[in-house]
Amino acid sequence: MSTAQTTSSGTAVSPHPGPPRSDLRSALVDTSSVGLALFPLGLALGILVVHSQLAWWWAPVFAGLVYAGSLEFLLIGLVTAATPLAQVALTAFLVNFRHVFYALSFPLHRVRGRWAKGYATFALTDEAYALTTGPSARRWSGRRILWLQVLCQGYWVAGATAGAAGAALIPVQLDGLDFALTALFIVLAVDGYRANRDIPVPVIALVCALIARFLLPGQMLPVALGLFLAALLIRRVRAGKVVPGHA
């Protein structure tokens, strides 16, 4: 005898639907493509740590405690040059200042618990932000978001540790190694554009980058970010003044 039930519209519905996918399994699927980029980037970090004459264990320390992507690559040079702590702090502030704006739309309110919120804040990287703020992520649970961040850091730490361990077998000069992180950011930007096809945003970003490149090439990153932020704020204000039906 069939156990299917029938709704008022005559549609048969199974009374025992399949079990929902666990948050961990969902996070594994969510991070599969990003993990393919984070692990080799971690390898690059580990290799650079050892080839910069630092002990191999600095690689998992940077990846586990600093966990700031591009800053970690810069930090290798700062540490080997015995850079003053104040200059290191200023560099970290300038490089990671964009995370302040990530926090404005990151779904931290879905994460439950003080320790969980603390880790979610610590592990808010470019990759985690890109994955958790897209249209498909609006219904994700806090546990799924946390697992996603744990997995992303796991790929990074594992790659850095493996890279440091095998650095002695790899030649010092690896062409293109320094472009790996830039390539990942390009992929994230392309994915962001596909999710929200707002053509003016990448055009504005390109113009700001070119202006900063030619005016202040030595300070291109902070200048370009500042110009881009100002342009987005102006665009937002102008859009808010448009009267519906009179654009």
Rank of each mutant, 00 (worst) to 15 (best):
T31G: 06
T31P: 05
S32A: 10
S32Q: 10
V34M: 08
V34N: 00
G35T: 01
G35S: 09
L36R: 10
L38S: 01
F39E: 00
F39S: 02
P40S: 09
G42Y: 02
L43M: 11
L43E: 08
L43C: 11
A44G: 11
G46V: 07
G46R: 01
I47H: 02
L48C: 06
L48R: 03
V49T: 13
V50C: 09
V50T: 15
H51A: 14
H51R: 15
S52I: 09
L54S: 12
L54K: 11
A55M: 15
A55V: 15
W57R: 13
W58C: 08
P60V: 04
P60H: 12
P60E: 05
P60Q: 14
V61A: 15
A63C: 11
V66G: 11
Y67I: 02
A68P: 05
A68S: 08
G69P: 09
S70M: 05
L71R: 04
L71I: 06
E72T: 02
E72P: 04
F73K: 10
L74E: 05
L75H: 00
I76A: 07
G77C: 09
L78C: 08
V79M: 04
A82T: 15
A82C: 14
A82V: 15
L85M: 15
Q87M: 15
V88E: 11
A89R: 15
L90S: 14
L90T: 15
L94S: 04
R98P: 10
R98V: 01
H99E: 00
V100C: 11
F101V: 00
Y102G: 00
Y102V: 00
Y102S: 09
A103T: 12
A103L: 13
F106Q: 06
L108M: 11
L108C: 05
R112E: 09
R112C: 08
G113S: 12
G113R: 08
G113W: 09
R114D: 05
W115M: 08
W115L: 13
K117E: 10
A120R: 02
A120I: 01
A120L: 11
T121K: 11
T121H: 11
F122R: 01
A123L: 01
A123V: 00
A123H: 03
L124D: 01
D126I: 05
D126G: 07
E127V: 01
T132D: 04
T132N: 10
G134T: 03
A137C: 09
R139D: 13
R139M: 04
S141A: 14
G142M: 05
R144Y: 06
R144F: 07
I145D: 02
W147L: 07
W147S: 04
L151D: 05
L151F: 07
L151Q: 03
C152Q: 03
Q153G: 08
